[in-house]
């Protein structure tokens, strides 16, 4: 079973994402900010990460930069999932090492399509 880490400061979004990804047979972990997510990644690197951009303590962009510099941090497929839908944000996220990008709001089909695109489904 593949492991996906859902990183979002909204418990509602985490719950919705968990439900969708569990439907695709992922084992789910949750973190409410980048710092907690980084700690979890140091313990066990997930296969995929669904990552919000704007979060307190450490945002998604900073988390991604830190993640990619960790040993083994280049392996998780990172799908940004954010309300930031401007081209400049998307480009910045991709340059920082994201593999895919979901603009909120999303649904099961969009999440499935993006995780399929990165080879996790």
């Amino acid at each position: 079973m593949k492991h996906c880490l859902v990183v979002d400061d909204s418990s509602v979004i985490r719950k919705v994402a968990r439900r969708i990804l569990e439907g695709y047979s992922f084992k789910i972990s949750e973190a409410e900010n980048g710092q907690s997510a980084l700690a979890l990644c140091k313990q066990a690197m997930p296969d995929g990460i669904l990552l919000d951009w704007n979060m307190p303590v450490m945002d998604g962009y900073e988390f991604l930069s830190e993640l990619r510099s960790l040993p083994g941090g280049d392996t998780p497929k990172v799908v940004f999932c954010t309300t930031e839908n401007d081209v400049s944000f998307i480009t910045r996220a991709m340059r920082a090492g994201a593999d895919e990008y979901v603009m909120k709001p999303f649904d099961k089909e969009i999440i499935g399509s993006k995780f399929a695109e990165v080879g996790l489904i």
Partner: peptide, 23 residues
């Protein structure tokens, strides 16, 4: 729409072949 471009279209192709016009 934003919804339509997220269904099946890889983000790299969106960035490469589309321009944003409002939403």
């Amino acid at each position: 729409s934003q919804f339509e471009v997220q269904r099946g279209l890889p983000i790299k192709l969106l960035l490469k072949h589309f321009t944003q016009e409002g939403d």
